[in-house]
Every structure is written in C-alpha cells, then in structure tokens.
Simulated assay, not measured.
Amino acid sequence: MSIIFLLTVLLESYFKNPLLNLFTFSLTIRCLFFIILSLVYFYQVYTREADIFKSEASQFWYNVGILVYASLAFFPFFLATEMMSGIFDYSLWYVHNIGNIMKNIFFAVGLWMVQKR
C-alpha cells in the first residue's frame, strides 16, 4: 500500500505543480488505505474475540479516530478539484474539520486509557 501511495504522489507531483495544487488523488488514496487498514484491524479483533477494553483499549480508540477521520475526509479530498474550481462552496470542508476534531477527541480518549492502566 505504501508503494502504491508513493507512486501516486510521485505521479501527481510530476503532472501537477506541488506549490499551487492540492494532491487530491493521492490524499484520496491515502484515506482509502486508512479506511481499509482500520477495518482490517476491527476484523482481526472480531476474529480473535479479544476483550479489547481490558488489554487494547488505547489501540481501539486510536483506530476509531483514524477510521472516523479517513471516512469523513475521503469525500472532501475526492471532490477538492471541483471545490477549488468554484462548483461547490467550501461547506464540504466543514465535514473534514469535524472529522479532524473527532479524531483528536478519540486520540485523547486513547491517551487517557493508557494513563488509566
């Protein structure tokens, strides 16, 4: 996955000006990879039938934060080219900002769970 992401960044930096344009395709691919990896983690926890709130509580909350952020940032990054051209207004970025705030809250909960142990 990291090789595919690196290739998309290199191709996008070759075809676009990195100072003027947002790397919309590579950011969308990154969010998609984070969503896939977060869901794989949840599937592993489900198949192991582990009690995550006793042993892995902080990892669970970190994963929830990454999943929420990647899910809410996917569409603003996917539609960023249209937003920059003026077709959409900037209200779609509010979804990205809400996802970022929720991610930070979930990370804080994860850090609090580490302190509790």
Rank of each mutant, 00 (worst) to 15 (best):
C31F: 11
L11V: 06
A80H: 13
L37S: 13
M102H: 01
M83L: 08
F5G: 15
S91P: 01
G65T: 03
L20I: 01
K116P: 06
E49A: 07
R30V: 02
F33N: 09
F77W: 15
T47S: 11
S91H: 03
F77S: 14
V114R: 15
G65Y: 04
R30M: 06
F60V: 02
S71H: 08
V68T: 09
E82L: 03
S26R: 04
T24I: 00
E49S: 11
F88S: 02
L6W: 10
I87A: 01
F25L: 03
W61D: 03
S85D: 08
N63M: 11
T8E: 00
E12A: 01
I98L: 14
L32T: 14
T8R: 00
Q115V: 13
L20M: 03
H96W: 13
N97G: 04
F34C: 03
A80E: 14
L7N: 05
A50C: 12
F33M: 08
F88V: 00
T28F: 12
Y41V: 01
P76C: 05
R30Q: 07
L20N: 07
S71C: 12
L20S: 10
Q44S: 01
S91C: 00
L67E: 04
F78K: 05
I101C: 09
L7V: 01
Y69I: 00
L6M: 07
L20W: 02
Q44L: 03
F74V: 00
F23K: 11
S85Y: 09
S55D: 08
Y43C: 07
L27I: 08
E82D: 10
M1S: 14
Y62S: 10
I66L: 13
E82P: 00
L32Q: 06
L92S: 06
L39M: 11
K16C: 06
R48T: 04
S13I: 00
F5T: 15
I29M: 08
T81W: 07
F77L: 13
F74D: 00
L10F: 15
F107A: 02
K16L: 09
L6A: 11
S55L: 05
I36A: 12
